[in-house]
């Protein structure tokens, strides 16, 4: 038996994303943000996208390219504090933004990836983040129904992948990537290195290749991946 080879051309993989799609994008700040896949999506040009990402990176970086190009209708996120451009788009009504408590965004995605319909939590009760959410009582205490999130596509950055799509992340570039890699119908991975089968130790795999559809190797990294000079 041999595990299938999922290597493919990045542009061809991203070309599957249609107008109106929902797309999860890994990363927290620069670490773990799939910069090359984002550029490929800008080049592909699909519009009316709903994006799910922890943050919107910084002006002129990462997710901001998709905001600049006008391809985004809606953004589900936790914090835009480092991207004044994203805040301007939100305040002027050009994109709709849904804010989540950060851990609840993670948990909603985890639920989506685990085949669960929703999770219950008391986070945000008594704040405006609870507005409009269904409340159920468990053990006499109110809980909000936090519905699971799934996407049509997930764009994932990994440090290492093998040809089957087993993935390993490094340092704080892990963040939302392993959660999103489980929660989308089509999962596209950019990896800094793609190794032959067997080169990635089975115990070192963070995301099983079962969740992954397409793997592409990055080659030389663009300067967008580098340490941000502030």
């Amino acid at each position: 038996m041999k595990l299938p080879d999922k290597r493919c051309d990045m542009a061809a993989a991203v070309a599957r994303i249609k107008d109106g799609a929902t797309v999860m994008v890994g990363g927290f700040g620069v670490p773990g943000t799939p910069m090359a896949l984002i550029h490929a999506l800008v080049d592909h040009g699909a519009r009316d996208l709903t994006l799910i990402k922890n943050d919107a990176n910084e002006p002129g970086m990462g997710l901001d390219h998709l905001l600049q190009s006008g391809q985004v209708t809606r953004l589900i996120t936790t914090h835009l504090g480092l991207n004044s451009h994203a805040i301007d788009l939100m305040n002027s009504g050009r994109i709709k933004v849904e804010f989540n408590a950060q851990g609840m965004l993670a948990e909603r995605i985890r639920a989506g990836g685990a085949g669960i319909g929703a999770v219950l939590s008391d986070i945000g009760i008594g704040t405006e983040l609870a507005e409009g959410k269904q409340v159920v009582e468990v053990d006499g205490k109110p809980h909000l129904v936090e519905t699971a999130l799934r996407a049509d596509f997930a764009l994932i950055h990994a440090d290492r992948a093998d040809t089957f799509g087993n993935l390993a992340y490094v340092a704080t570039a892990r963040n939302f990537n392993p959660l999103m890699a489980m929660a989308a119908t089509h999962v596209i991975v950019e990896a800094e290195t793609v190794t032959p089968l067997g080169a990635l130790d089975a115990d070192a795999v963070h995301t099983s290749g079962v969740f992954v559809d397409h793997v592409t190797e990055l080659g030389a990294l663009s300067k967008e991946y580098a340490v941000v000079q502030r």
């Binding site: 927290f28 620069v30 480092l82 993670a106 995605i109 490094v170 340092a171 580098a226 340490v227």
Partner: peptide
């Protein structure tokens, strides 16, 4: 390290015994 920041975006380091994990 380009892959090692805190939640405020500052570049930080590890100490002996540090651990990394996902957001959930």
């Amino acid at each position: 390290d380009r892959n090692l920041i805190d939640a405020g975006g500052a570049y930080v380091s590890t100490v002996p015994g540090s651990a990394f994990f996902d957001s959930a």
